[in-house]
Design a protein around this nucleic acid. Structure first.
Lengths: 244, 244
DNA sequence: CGCTTCTTTGACGAGCCTCAAACTGAGTGG
DNA sequence: CCACTCAGTTTGAGGCTCGTCAAAGAAGCG
């Protein structure tokens, strides 16, 4: 987690949030400076910490500044399904209560309070921000549909490719990755629970992708060697941008 | 499709809509009568007809009055994933444009224009209706998460059980089914595309459920013989009700 | 270092898919 | 009333994908 893709060096703390929201709607200068002030009320979370409980009456709206989290549901027998990964710049707990899934930190995580932004948007005081948050919610919906296609109709090989392409795109938007490289601080268990596979099969599928010359994984960084080929192979359609 | 669960005999045309929205929020008398007037602008759709195209700029908001539809996505090679089934009383095309998936009629279908309801809710003229529509959107989100769990972490046997329980609950709410029986006008191909299975395996899994004394299927009607056992077996949690 | 967590490998079996064909039932037209 | 057709269901055979169990490496961390 150090070096080129560090989330601490070379970026202002809340830069991913600004970048992401700017990619979703046009923000005014007052809106931007409101967002910049959010960085002051920061909070740290250890891996495994639950940020939102499944039926939380009033989940606190937050933005992820650094580190990764996920939305998930657990079954009584221990099976877990991860619905989506929350990357730096992503919002959580902005939807109406009660929460439909829990949110859990996957790595060391930093978040900031999103309430000022949400309030301003709701009051009508920040139309650009309101549009950006609406677009973010739409994008989350789109990602969930992609996830359903992955789980229901893609093979393990296609699923992994699709998954990596989604991460590449999302991380590039926030400036944390480029067209080919991005940080990937996930264990194979987490990928398994996200992709509906077993850990062992994730491991073997990763090897397949490596042998096919598609990817390279080294110390928390993923490299896509043939992004175009991967895109075709799994019918990846990219992340939704601005709403209409 | 005649007899006890007919959608035409014994119910006022838009009754499923009223029942469903009343289950989601408290509606005032003016709101109810607004909804009743919707029944006048009715539209018929043949099976297979596309009601909303995947990237439709402005999908027309509609309520399903009778028949079933689905939200789905198609892959270039013909694979299909159904995200959700739309039953009588359900709304479609109410979210912000452009549409993230297409909506297709699965059976002969009747819909009515939802725009008057949506407009009234947006204008602030119908707070109860607005609450009901928001709760409906929330419920759709919840169903999509259930669907992801089904696809990612349940076995074929559990998936089918979970699927039937969801349909039972949803249809009971609109008065189209009871605690054990409900109409099921779906081919096994449709179930397969909904559950992420092959047709053949759906057929065999249905036989398993029958042999286990769980279900009975006869001419478009499903009977759940042991709903409680089924609920335990697949960790079914029921449909979300009123939002907070 | 020694511990824990994570990754990797092997062996084996089960779940699910594909292909192919037979069967059923509901029209449709002669 | 009887083919005939067509969509849907059911069955069989065979094989690939993916899961489970178990244990051996690697890699991070105190």
């Amino acid at each position: 987690m150090t070096g080129r893709f560090s989330t601490h060096i070379g970026f202002r703390p809340i830069d991913p949030i600004l970048r992401r929201l700017k990619s979703l709607a046009t923000l005014s200068e007052p809106e931007l400076s409101l967002l910049r002030t959010l960085g002051e009320r920061r909070e740290r979370h250890a891996p495994g910490e639950q940020l939102v409980a499944e039926h939380a009456k009033e989940p606190r709206p937050r933005f992820v500044v650094s580190g990764w989290a996920c939305r998930q549901r657990l079954m009584p027998d221990g099976r877990r399904q991860i619905f989506s990964l929350m990357l730096p710049g992503d919002d959580l707990g902005f939807e109406s209560a009660p929460a439909l899934a829990s949110v859990v930190a996957l790595t060391a995580l930093e978040t900031v309070d999103g309430a000022p932004a949400l309030d301003a948007a709701r009051r009508g005081a920040a139309p650009g921000l309101a549009a950006a948050l609406a677009a973010a919610a739409r994008q989350a919906d789109a990602l969930l549909l992609d996830q359903a296609v992955r789980l229901g109709r893609l093979t393990a090989f296609e699923r992994m490719a699709h998954f990596f392409l989604e991460l590449q795109h999302r991380l590039e938007i926030t400036g944390l990755g480029d067209r080919q490289r991005f940080p990937l601080p996930l264990t194979q268990e987490i990928m398994a629970d996200s992709l509906g596979l077993s850990i062992v099969h994730v491991n073997r599928t990763l090897q397949q992708l490596r042998r096919a010359g598609m990817i390279e994984l080294r110390s928390g960084v993923a490299i896509l060697l043939q992004p175009e080929a991967m895109t075709k192979l799994c019918d990846y359609r990219g992340v939704a941008n601005k709403a209409a």
